[in-house]
Design a protein around this nucleic acid. Structure first.
Lengths: 343, 343
DNA sequence: CGATATATGAGGCACGCACCTCAAAAATCA
DNA sequence: TGATTTTTGAGGTGCGTGCCTCATATATCG
């Protein structure tokens, strides 16, 4: 009734412990037929190797790295907090995670930093940077050195050795669209879409999804082209000012970027935010406060703690060559209103 | 740079390994002053005991029990699936979880079953049954025998040794209220509230929260008293038939119970479900399909896999007397629309 | 103060596995 | 067939901890 051990496996396969060890740890010097005999015995008796005992014996410490962009926003802050929090719990699982910041817009620097990692005895890397050929190649190099990689929050669609941990941004955009359509009720008017820069793939995908839904309400809602703030408060204020001057009333605003504090202040200073429906992304101290006071109507979120823990679990599973619970690693597109806000 | 071990701790405290062991495992025969010296040393050098090594040495297998009501509905099915899924992963953590079904309305039987558990070498119990004095006392007995207990999905408000793993149902009700108010747009009319039985505490709390929000829209929306289906299809059809006959139009329906398949069929057969807003709870194969075809507008969910895993983590942490990551164990009130439905 | 009770130390074996060495067996080659 | 190479077995040590025994040191009491 108790779990089979390596001893049981040796007996079942009719080989010695030494050979079992050689097979389990892929050491050389074992005939193919013997490997197969052991493999069959593993399946027969349902042997699963006790990884905690193995890691104990091995004295192995897993080292994970999160490669994050070096600009500061509230979302990144949350990610760092979560990593620190996870680190404490990971301590007892012989795993640690560190953060490395890189300039998001310098693919060569990022790739170079990734290349350095292989020397440091790193076991896994979670990468949150825009995709680029340089990074894609660096990922492929990491992979061939046996270092596990996941794409964190931002997908790396062309790097097929990096599993994506994050949400489907197109679906997130559709979700916002649906909420926008329903929250604006029967009102007719203009819907604005703002982001920091349209360069970001996330923004593009969100917009795509948003438009899919908005198209169904074209008779009532007019969606304007995406306006870019470039993170510049003055520019932001100006474009919002202009947009609100239009003849048709603005009934909704979709803020696609992180760190919407500046933008929200600009909207308020221009007298918006009253009756219009405003929807943004990511639950931060700022957006929380705005959900409570009602200036934001809904926030689309991904659970940052979950993102971090899931990434680490996946990296570990890759390093240990074991499976994961798929349902546990699926990141949800969460809709947060004032009423269901956690805490 | 490496983690301190018991050896380091012994050296730091100026005692022997045997004494460290006595203190760590709360064995008797150690003077208070010595215990304190070791305790201080633990804090000083930041010792954290390697639980995987400890469990290995101890040969300990944690045995968890989920006590679930014996009636079958889709939600319970999901819970059982998740437990089985978790079990596979738990295998490598020396933990197993089994399900025991009990008649939900027989507090004495439930209490008796709980009392039996102590004999079986069970380490933790997750209880999903209506609260009752008998169960409350049985929980207290389990606690005094050192068996960890959590209240699973349904709170046990008077059992203070059972942590609650689930959502705040009053907040869930408020969330539904907010969605109902916004999704009905500017329409005026009647809102129906249905449940299987008003006896269920969950239903009562949800209704309470729902009414808080509905009260703000009293000029537009008239909320009817909760109607009970008693799980009887004919009765359900009859009360819905009557409700839809009224002079004022029905603009929304809130289904507070699990397993709303029957009720939805009754609504459809009575010609409802067309323009009205219908909101229910729990994401099951049935409600998924209804979100997709549009008969349901929104579903309020708790992540069942998360509920199960979180319960097990908490039970283990209690048994091992270690802490948990609070943010990881917080169950969210999830809003699921067609657009953000997982998978 | 000695007798007794209590605290503490030293050491060993075990858990399931990794990793090492050395010798013996089996397969391969000339 | 004998020499060489490859494969396998036997056995040991250690990872960090639990748990046990026995001897010794220290405190407590009459």
């Amino acid at each position: 009734m108790t779990r089979p051990t390596t001893k049981d496996l040796a007996k079942a396969a009719g080989v010695s412990l030494a050979t079992v060890d050689r097979v389990l740890n892929r050491r050389s010097g074992v005939r193919k037929v013997t490997v197969e005999r052991v493999t069959r015995a593993i399946a027969d008796i349902g042997f699963v190797r006790d990884m905690s005992a193995a890691n104990l014996a091995r004295g192995k410490e897993y080292r994970m790295v999160f490669l994050l962009p070096d600009h500061d926003d509230e979302f990144i802050d949350l990610v760092c907090d979560s990593i620190n929090e996870a680190n404490r719990a990971l301590h007892s699982e012989r795993t640690s995670a560190v953060v490395i910041r890189v300039p998001a817009n310098d693919p060569h620097r990022i790739a170079a930093r990734l290349d350095e990692l292989s020397a440091d005895g790193v076991d896994g890397v979670a990468i949150m940077t825009p995709e680029s050929p340089q990074v894609r190649d660096a990922i492929s190099r990491l992979d061939s050195r046996g270092i596990a990689v996941v794409a964190f929050v931002s997908n790396q669609p062309n790097a097929d050795n990096a599993l994506f941990v994050g949400v489907n941004n197109e679906a997130a955009g559709r979700t916002v669209g649906q909420l926008m359509a329903r929250f604006t009720g029967a009102q007719a008017g203009v819907v604005l879409v703002l982001t920091e820069t349209i360069q970001s793939r996330d923004s593009q995908e969100r917009r795509l999804g948003f438009d899919v839904i908005m198209a169904k309400y074209a008779d009532r809602l007019t969606v304007r082209p995406t306006m870019e703030t470039y993170g510049d408060p003055q520019r932001t204020t100006r474009i919002i000012h202009t947009a609100l001057q239009g003849r048709e009333p603005v009934v909704g605003i979709y803020l696609m970027h992180h760190d919407i504090g500046e933008t929200m202040r600009a909207i308020e200073s221009e007298g918006g935010a009253g009756e219009m429906v405003i929807i943004g992304h990511e639950l931060t101290p700022d957006t929380r406060a705005r959900l409570i006071d009602g200036t934001l109507d809904a926030v689309i979120t991904q659970d940052v703690g979950h993102l971090v823990r899931s990434s680490i679990r996946i990296l570990r599973a890759k390093a240990e060559q074991v499976g994961t619970i798929a349902s546990q690693e699926r990141i949800r597109i969460e809709i947060t209103l004032r009423e269901n806000m956690p805490e």
